[in-house]
Lab assay of single mutants.
Amino acid sequence: MDETGKELVLALYDYQEKSPREVTMKKGDILTLLNSTNKDSWKVEVKITVNGKTYERQGFVPAAYVKKL
């Protein structure tokens, strides 16, 4: 869990989004878990840094590609 009590997951593999509802992640990324009720895909939040500014983006990733921490 992070400092706000949200559950975290670790990306086990790289994943490139295939639709606007998904998010891209790299192996080793730590993501905030938002919903894990679907056995196939979990909703997560990723933090992306562009030019020194951090943005948050929500979307789905394959459940088999992440592990709860």
Results as ranks from 00 to 15, higher is better:
1 M>H: 14
1 M>K: 13
1 M>G: 13
1 M>P: 13
1 M>I: 12
1 M>Y: 13
2 D>N: 14
2 D>Q: 14
2 D>E: 13
3 E>H: 14
3 E>Y: 13
3 E>L: 14
3 E>Q: 14
3 E>G: 14
3 E>V: 14
4 T>L: 12
4 T>R: 14
5 G>W: 12
5 G>I: 13
6 K>W: 10
6 K>F: 11
6 K>A: 11
6 K>N: 10
6 K>P: 13
6 K>C: 15
6 K>G: 10
7 E>A: 10
7 E>S: 11
7 E>L: 11
7 E>N: 10
7 E>M: 11
7 E>P: 09
7 E>T: 13
7 E>W: 12
8 L>C: 15
8 L>G: 02
8 L>M: 09
8 L>I: 08
9 V>C: 12
9 V>L: 11
9 V>A: 08
9 V>E: 01
9 V>H: 03
9 V>N: 00
9 V>I: 07
9 V>S: 00
10 L>K: 07
10 L>S: 03
10 L>F: 08
11 A>N: 02
11 A>L: 05
11 A>F: 03
11 A>Q: 01
11 A>T: 05
12 L>E: 02
12 L>T: 03
12 L>C: 12
12 L>V: 05
12 L>P: 01
13 Y>Q: 12
13 Y>R: 15
13 Y>H: 09
13 Y>V: 12
13 Y>E: 10
14 D>R: 01
14 D>V: 04
14 D>L: 05
14 D>N: 07
14 D>I: 06
15 Y>I: 01
15 Y>N: 00
15 Y>S: 01
15 Y>R: 01
15 Y>M: 01
16 Q>V: 14
16 Q>M: 12
16 Q>S: 11
16 Q>P: 04
17 E>V: 05
17 E>R: 14
17 E>F: 06
17 E>C: 12
18 K>V: 08
18 K>M: 10
18 K>I: 06
18 K>L: 08
19 S>D: 11
19 S>H: 11
19 S>E: 08
19 S>Y: 07
19 S>C: 10
19 S>G: 12
20 P>W: 09
20 P>Y: 07
21 R>H: 14
21 R>C: 15
21 R>W: 15
21 R>L: 14
21 R>T: 13
22 E>K: 04
22 E>Y: 06
22 E>C: 08
22 E>F: 05
22 E>M: 04
23 V>P: 02
23 V>R: 01
23 V>D: 01
23 V>W: 03
24 T>H: 03
24 T>W: 03
24 T>D: 03
24 T>K: 04
24 T>Q: 04
24 T>G: 08
24 T>R: 05
24 T>A: 05
25 M>Q: 02
25 M>N: 00
25 M>H: 01
26 K>T: 08
26 K>P: 01
26 K>A: 07
26 K>Q: 08
26 K>W: 07
26 K>M: 08
27 K>H: 05
27 K>S: 05
27 K>P: 02
27 K>D: 02
27 K>T: 05
28 G>K: 03
28 G>P: 00
28 G>F: 04
28 G>L: 03
29 D>I: 05
29 D>Y: 05
29 D>L: 05
29 D>R: 02
29 D>N: 04
29 D>K: 02
30 I>A: 01
30 I>P: 00
30 I>T: 04
31 L>R: 01
31 L>A: 07
31 L>S: 01
31 L>H: 03
31 L>I: 06
31 L>E: 01
32 T>S: 07
32 T>D: 03
32 T>Y: 10
33 L>D: 02
33 L>H: 00
33 L>Y: 01
33 L>V: 06
33 L>T: 01
34 L>P: 00
34 L>A: 01
34 L>W: 02
34 L>E: 02
34 L>K: 03
34 L>T: 02
35 N>Y: 05
35 N>D: 15
35 N>R: 05
35 N>C: 12
35 N>W: 06
35 N>T: 05
35 N>E: 14
36 S>V: 05
36 S>T: 09
36 S>I: 05
36 S>A: 11
36 S>E: 12
36 S>F: 05
37 T>Q: 11
37 T>P: 03
37 T>F: 09
37 T>W: 07
38 N>C: 10
38 N>R: 09
38 N>P: 03
38 N>H: 09
39 K>Y: 08
39 K>D: 09
39 K>Q: 11
39 K>P: 15
40 D>S: 08
40 D>P: 02
40 D>V: 11
40 D>N: 11
40 D>T: 11
41 S>C: 15
41 S>K: 12
41 S>M: 15
41 S>F: 15
42 W>S: 00
42 W>G: 00
42 W>V: 04
42 W>A: 01
42 W>T: 00
42 W>Y: 05
43 K>C: 15
43 K>N: 04
44 V>A: 00
44 V>R: 00
44 V>S: 00
45 E>Q: 13
45 E>Y: 07
45 E>K: 11
45 E>D: 03
45 E>C: 15
45 E>F: 06
46 V>T: 10
46 V>N: 04
46 V>M: 10
46 V>F: 08
47 K>F: 08
47 K>S: 12
47 K>A: 08
48 I>M: 10
48 I>V: 13
48 I>F: 11
48 I>K: 06
49 T>G: 03
49 T>M: 12
49 T>I: 12
50 V>G: 04
50 V>R: 09
50 V>T: 08
51 N>G: 11
51 N>I: 03
51 N>W: 05
52 G>L: 03
52 G>Y: 02
53 K>F: 13
53 K>N: 11
53 K>W: 09
53 K>S: 10
53 K>M: 13
53 K>E: 12
54 T>Y: 08
54 T>I: 12
54 T>M: 10
54 T>P: 07
55 Y>G: 05
55 Y>W: 10
55 Y>S: 09
56 E>N: 15
56 E>Y: 15
56 E>T: 15
56 E>L: 15
56 E>F: 15
57 R>P: 01
57 R>C: 08
57 R>Y: 08
57 R>T: 06
57 R>I: 10
58 Q>S: 11
58 Q>G: 03
58 Q>Y: 06
58 Q>I: 13
58 Q>N: 06
58 Q>A: 10
59 G>Y: 05
59 G>P: 00
59 G>V: 04
59 G>K: 00
59 G>R: 00
59 G>Q: 01
60 F>N: 05
60 F>A: 01
60 F>C: 15
60 F>E: 04
60 F>G: 00
60 F>L: 06
60 F>W: 15
60 F>I: 05
60 F>D: 03
61 V>P: 00
61 V>C: 04
61 V>Q: 00
61 V>A: 01
61 V>Y: 00
61 V>M: 01
62 P>N: 05
62 P>R: 04
62 P>V: 07
63 A>V: 06
63 A>M: 02
63 A>F: 03
64 A>Y: 09
64 A>I: 11
64 A>K: 14
64 A>Q: 11
64 A>P: 06
64 A>H: 11
64 A>S: 13
64 A>L: 09
65 Y>N: 07
65 Y>F: 13
65 Y>M: 15
66 V>G: 00
66 V>Q: 02
66 V>C: 10
66 V>N: 01
66 V>Y: 01
66 V>D: 03
66 V>M: 06
67 K>S: 09
67 K>T: 12
67 K>L: 10
67 K>H: 10
67 K>M: 13
68 K>N: 05
68 K>E: 05
68 K>G: 04
68 K>T: 07
68 K>A: 08
68 K>S: 08
68 K>C: 11
68 K>D: 04
69 L>Q: 03
69 L>M: 09
69 L>Y: 07
69 L>V: 10
